[in-house]
Design a protein around this nucleic acid. Structure first.
Lengths: 195, 195
DNA sequence: GTCTATAGCCGGATAGAC
DNA sequence: GTCTATCCGGCTATAGAC
């Protein structure tokens, strides 16, 4: 395959994924028809099926992008060797979601889908595993540094604390997606008060 | 209408709602067809449409039951005048879900649906409002009793604490529905450690 | 009230021309 | 690679006999 063709393929896939993401955000995964995606993308049925095998594959590409955005930001902030306080971690995780308001409602939908869609479930599972793999060592480092725990104790503490941090992120996602008057600052302040 | 007929109507509606709940739990709301509900109930299409106007109405009846179960238990435990510690509240809320394992995944699905389904969203919204109306006074009472706050301060404290308690419940729902090795005891212990 | 049978529609995916 | 036109399957809801 020639170089140009590869680049073109990628950009067409992006064009389709963009349109699908907008459509899913507007109508939901299942309620969105191929006709919707076709109209939103400005392409035709034939063009789209030349790049994706099925609607399911398009949904997977969208899910990968939404989840990948969140993972990317986590890596970015956790990889730098800095060890912020746990309430700051929640603020960091949710900061990206605030920018893309769209994402929290898509994430809630993804969870709902993943209950009965094999492919999405395994994708969501992998992301949970990766988040765990990232946060646990960070939490252990924080416990050593700020609580003076021994490495083994710190590890145990981190494993205990992890579900709580996850719950704060998940609570943010649910509440911001579903509660009409949700206030991000109040939510973060409440977490700060508890931790 | 004669008495017998009313009782019969109710029990038929329950029979249909039961079958629908099982079907939704097994396949998801959207993936479940009327044919599934018909087969699961042992009735016929005609019989079902004699009791419900549409599939949507059946979904609403199921949603009402799932959410109502949780609300009922909350009322039961909060109304008795006792003031358990906040971590016990989370244990109480999640206890009912543990019994019906089915419920957590149905709740996650309900959230997903409610993003784009008007009727379900308004139902979920009403339940959130009712939970808030129940928990806020309880939290204020707890703060007066166990932290010696004045009524006004206690009220403010309760409004701050509420989203955190909600997050713990929501985290439980998400994690128990989606994480393969989820351990209820560990989760509750982690919350106890934080509070 | 409940059954069987089916109308009528809409969705995903494909065929074939260009 | 992309378009238009269309097939085919499955879905919800109804009609009509009992």
């Amino acid at each position: 395959m020639p170089k140009v063709s590869d680049a073109h393929r990628e950009s067409r896939r992006d064009q389709i994924t963009d349109a699908a993401l907008r459509s899913f955000a507007a109508k939901g995964f299942q309620r969105t028809s191929m006709a919707d995606i076709i109209a939103e993308s400005g392409l035709s049925a034939g063009a789209i099926y030349g790049h994706f095998e099925s609607k399911q594959q398009i949904a997977m590409a969208v899910a990968q992008r939404v989840l990948g955005n969140r993972l990317g930001e986590l890596h970015e902030h956790m990889g730098a060797g800095r060890v912020p306080d746990p309430d700051q971690v929640v603020a960091i995780i949710t900061e990206g979601m605030r920018r893309d308001l769209i994402d929290t409602s898509l994430l809630v939908q993804l969870w709902g889908e993943s209950v009965h869609d094999e492919q999405i479930r395994s994708l969501v599972g992998r992301v949970f595993a990766e988040v765990t793999a990232n946060l646990t060592p960070y939490l252990a480092a924080w416990a050593r540094q700020n609580r003076g725990l021994q490495p083994a104790e710190a590890e145990t503490w981190a494993e205990t604390a992890l579900p709580v941090i996850l719950a704060f992120a998940q609570g943010y996602i649910v509440q911001s997606a579903l509660l009409p008057g949700f206030d991000r600052e109040k939510y973060l302040a409440a977490i700060r008060a508890v931790l």
